[in-house]
Every structure is written in C-alpha cells, then in structure tokens.
C-alpha cells in the first residue's frame, strides 16, 4: 500500500520533529538549570579544577600534536598554491588567518567533542546507570550542582585554551615546514603575519568562536549523559550522540558565527 507507507513516513517525520523540538526545549531548560546550579562549582574551586584536568590537561597531547600536523600541512599546501601566484610571502598570513579564524577553534572543537565530550557523557551516563546520581539525590546533594555544573564549567574553561594552543602549535608547524624546510624567508613569514592578522577582530573572533563551541559541546555532553537511558546500551548511544551532535553543532555554529563576523568586518 503506497498510500499507507506514505502516511507512515509522514507520521514518522512528524514524530521525529516533535521529539527533536521537545529535546531542544529540554536542553535549553537544562542549560538554565546548570547556570542556576553553578555557584557551588565556582565557590568550591577544587570541583571545577578536577574537571579542567580531565577535559583540558588530558586533551593536551592530542590537541598539540594535531595542531602541529595541521600547521605543517597548511604550510606545504599553502606555499605551493601561493607561490604559483607569486604570493609566497603571504604564507605566514595565510597560515595564521586559517588557524586563528577557522581551523583552531573548529578542529580543536571537533577533537574536544570526541575526546573530552564523549568522556563526560560516558561518565555521567554511567553514574546514572549505577544509581550514583540517585544516591546523591537521596543524600540531599543535588547532582546538578555537584556533578553536572563542574563538568560543564571545566570543559567551557578548557576549550578556548585548547583552541589557542592548537593555533600556536599550527603556526609553529608552519614555521618549521615553511621556513626551515621549504626555505621561505623567516622575517617575511613573521612580518607579514603580524601585518595581516589583527588582534581585533581576527584573534578575538577566534577566541569568541572557541568559547561558543565550548559551551555547545559541554552542554550537549552533560545533557546526553544526564538524559541517557540507564543501560549499557543507552550510555553507548548517548556517547555516540555527543560526538555526532557535538561535531555537527560546531560546524553549523561556525558557519553562523562566520557569517555574522564577516559581515561585521565588511561593514567597517
């Protein structure tokens, strides 16, 4: 029955849409709840410090290495193309702008979502599955203040720092390849970079982007963990969802933010 199948398809689409809207609304309320439950994670610094360790320090190696390699590839590819148009001098600008505006926040964000975001989701999901959150609630301790908010803030603080480190490593990688190996001039590399990259708006925009990505990924991570089905399978699904939705959110937000920032720069 094609009409029947069509009806079923439409119904499924409708149900999916309603479910998605409900979840987004729930996530927004969850965000507000995290903010109102945040004072404890600010007052008791140790709680948040611990989460910065797990989200930030443990992500350092992957972020630094990735930054280095991305920078080195950028230098190779960029130099090849730029030199064809006689613009090899602009290698520094090209690499620095790519990293600071786009690749730093975006790639660091994607790595952060899969490294730290998934860990946060799995941890909270597992605590829910093993009744640890319920046990806390029964002890008159609010898991939102004690578990969720510190993890959220730990990630939000780590993200911009990781993105900045990624960009710096990328610039170093490009310097090693571009100047040391290919033989671009060191003075032109740094000089043109400084001439072409502005603290305001290029670097500040990159920092704003990484902050927004940090909030988005951490919210998704704690939300998926907190609302995970309390089974082994449920936690696995939630962890996957964090990586998938987190990555998509970063790319979509990057587009939206770039549109606004680019427009802002054009109007100047």
């Amino acid at each position: 029955m094609p009409a029947d199948a069509l009806g079923r398809g439409v119904r499924r689409l409708g149900a999916g849409t309603i479910n998605a809207v409900v979840r987004i609304g729930y996530a927004a309320r969850f965000f507000v709840a995290i903010l109102t439950h945040s004072p404890q994670s600010i007052l008791r610094v140790g709680l948040t410090t611990r989460e910065i360790y797990f989200a930030g320090v443990l992500s350092l190696v992957i972020i630094l290495l990735s930054g280095l390699f991305v920078g080195m590839v950028l230098a190779l590819q960029g130099f090849d193309v730029l030199e064809k148009y006689g613009a090899g001098d602009s290698l520094g600008v090209f690499v620095a702008l790519s990293l600071v505006r786009e690749l730093g926040p975006v790639v660091a964000g994607l790595l952060f979502a899969s490294r730290a975001g998934s860990a946060i989701t799995a941890e909270i999901g597992l605590m829910k599955t093993t009744d640890q959150l319920a046990a806390m609630e029964m002890m008159a301790v609010d898991p939102l203040s004690r578990i969720v908010a510190p993890r959220f803030w730990g990630g939000v603080i780590s993200m911009p720092l990781l993105a900045a480190l990624f960009s710096v490593m990328g610039v170093f990688g490009a310097y090693i390849v571009g100047v040391r190996l290919i033989g671009a001039d060191s003075g032109t590399f740094w000089g043109n970079m400084r001439a072409g990259v502005g603290f305001w708006p290029d670097i500040t925009n990159g920092i704003i982007k990484s902050c927004v990505f940090g909030v988005a990924v951490c919210l998704i991570a704690v939300f998926e963990g907190y609302t995970a089905k309390p089974t082994a399978e449920g936690v696995a699904t939630a962890t996957t969802r964090t990586v998938v939705i987190g990555s998509l959110a970063i790319l979509a937000l990057d587009f939206v933010l770039t549109v606004f920032m680019f427009r802002g720069m054009g109007a100047k």
């Binding site: 597992l126 605590m127 093993t130 009744d131 002890m139």
Partner: peptide, 17 residues
C-alpha cells in the same frame, strides 16, 4: 531536609566510582 535524616542503600551499592 528529610533526606538528610534518611539513609539509603541502593541495589548494588551505587558507590561513587
């Protein structure tokens, strides 16, 4: 306030891992 005066042992303990 009530829960501060009530202890609970969960199935399988629910210790903080």
């Amino acid at each position: 306030g009530l829960r501060r005066r009530v202890g609970m042992l969960f199935q399988f303990g629910a210790l903080f891992t």
